[in-house]
Nucleic acid binder design. Structure first.
Lengths: 211, 211, 211, 211
DNA sequence: CACTAAACGAGACGGTACGTCAAGTCTTAAG
DNA sequence: CTTAAGACTTGACGTACCGTCTCGTTTAGTG
């Protein structure tokens, strides 16, 4: 005698423990920092989180997705501030990005994810959606602030503005990543200052009308 | 380094087959391109190269070193040409670098090596020595050409010149890598042109004497 | 036993669905026949019976008890008939027993239960009480019939009679089981006839007074 | 420089350690006796034998085959002796068979194997070939001895003799197994004597020419 | 009639063992 | 001393069931 319930989304069965998610992600981050990507095993994470291995697999299909989620939150801390000048704003955000990239768990996670992403288009998409693209907001906001201050000309073409954001984003992110992750040298204050100088030149040029 | 080819001291027993080295490195590259880092197994490489696993381990201590050697040679093709203008030279070398980074085996190998490098300082050093730093010659040579043409001022301070090379190198390499490997979008002609423009502004500024 | 049907004490809450018991036992038998003991999982039985796993465990403490109950009922069909002669009666009952043992679910269940019984004395006891010993009634009744017809002498000693029943039971049951389950050959009419002959000899000898 | 080796099958690579086989089989038997079939895990056996799990799987495809091999040797001890009379010979061999069946590892192994055999025809065949059928030699030899002594008539028909051996074998093996494994009662001296009496009657009858 | 207590489904959960795979080492015989 | 072949130890993998638990939902009888 089936009584059709019109409940839209009935959660059946025992509900998942929400705290478990946090415990797992936290365990993932700490294990990642200590052991690196290669040393990160699902069994290990489960043990650290005080959770059965099956529980991990019930929530994340693989190590990749788990680490994406575990790492993504780290980037939420990046914020664009308005310090009154474009140079100051750029230096501040670069400094924060560099600090983030200097943390061991970020290093291990980022490059390992990028590496896996070269093989798995879906993973690459997830990485872009969850981690990379959201950071473009920093460039958008920085430009908006500078435009409000009159340091940069207003956007005329929407598409051109997006292209410019993309290229600036690739340049900043790429340079800092290469400096820290590949060259393995710190992004010290001096380096940031010099890099900002390098970056400001074309922006200034743009603002004065040169192609 | 892991491949002692030139024999200063005459070996006693059966000599190594030199062709084996090439077969192994070639097998490594093709396996890497097809299967990615995770799918690359020593047993697999050995089988492809028609060689026993023992032979691999006798010549390279681990997968990392093997891949470094297998990939390093790809970068030897990068050459700086003198096309008569700094813009043309930059565009040409960026185009070649982008083409190299678009090849699947390069993608898989580079990021995987960088990822491993974040965990293993010795490996990072080997990567820098074998792969990364040698490419700085391109920046050096490009600057020298431009200086010879009078497009850039002569170096005054040796140390300052090296710093400038470093920051330009990090910027170019980082931006192209981020564009292709992380953002996953091609470095098309238009992008290269725009990026070169961005890059030329500060160089031009430098040439006019600004710090 | 694990299925308390008659309710001496009035249950308070929602009463159990009696049909569920039958559905579960039927599902157990069919799953057993198809998948064998090793392939029989509680989750599977539950699914087949259209029932939650919890419901199974609420009614039977373990797979063992469930299978005992599921299989025991099969043996209720065995009946001793009075066909007018001891030989005919023995052949008839052996034939029925052989037919029962030829059914796949009986085979899988019986041997699996016996196997588990070697490890778990309580289970062995349950098996004997629910399945094995009840069949001794067949031997008892067969002897009684034969005695009524004068084919066998009356019992003098109660204990001796029980011993004789035991040994005849072990012999008949064991031989048929070994033939079908171990040797894996059918108990055809000819085999039954020959085996009955073998069995009648000592009974005849007993009837003529030998110890 | 062909050196003609007359070795029929040249073993390449590192040869298997023969002692490992014995260690594994011994570990299997002892684990079986202590933990029973259900408690017997491949990992456990490997650990006991001081061997990696993979080594087990390299040599035996599954638990079944391993246990067959481990148990089969136990039956090699059964021997038919010539004690001068058919009764004595039967009692002796039944006693030995009963003793063998009383050992815990034999109990756990036999019934579990028979149980698995009901599902897997190939396994059943292996069991018959390795364990069951070889024991028929005992019946053959016992008959031969008795014939030599004149206690039993000579065989006339080869096929009939084989059928007789089969039925005697099923009866003896089945009765003892049922007594010990199913009924769970010991095959004491008295039981053996009574069972032998039961068995001798038809044999005597046969020897006097009855069908 | 509403209340109550058990039955019930669904599925999360901590475990244990599975059988497979690759890493890197070791052992043999052949060159 | 190199090489090919393959045995070997180790350890993680992802899966399958286990038996328990925690929910929300029936469903009868009773207060």
């Amino acid at each position: 005698m089936a009584v059709p319930t019109d409940a839209p989304a009935r959660a059946k069965g025992r509900p998942r423990n929400a705290a478990t998610d946090h415990a797992i992600l936290e365990a993932t981050r700490s294990a990642l920092a200590e052991l690196g990507w290669g040393g990160l095993t699902m069994g290990h994470v489960a043990q650290r989180a005080g959770v059965a291995k099956t529980t991990l697999y019930r929530r994340w299909p693989s190590k990749n997705e788990l680490v994406v989620d575990a790492v993504a939150v780290l980037f939420d801390d990046l914020e664009m501030t308005d310090l009154g000048s474009l140079r100051a704003d750029i230096e501040a955000v670069v400094q924060r990005f560099a600090a983030l990239l200097s943390r061991p768990e970020t290093q291990a996670a980022m490059l390992a994810l990028f590496a896996e992403g070269t093989r798995d288009p879906l993973l690459r998409q997830r990485i872009r959606e969850s981690i990379v693209d959201p950071q473009k907001r920093l460039v958008h906001q920085g430009r908006a602030n500078a435009q409000a201050r009159g340091e940069l000309p207003r956007d005329i073409d929407e598409a051109a503005a997006r292209q410019e954001v993309d290229i600036i984003f690739d340049t900043i992110a790429g340079a800092v990543e290469h400096r820290i992750l590949v060259s393995g040298e710190p992004a010290c204050e001096q380096w940031i200052s010099r890099f900002t100088t390098l970056l400001l030149a074309p922006l200034a040029a743009l603002s004065t009308g040169h192609p």
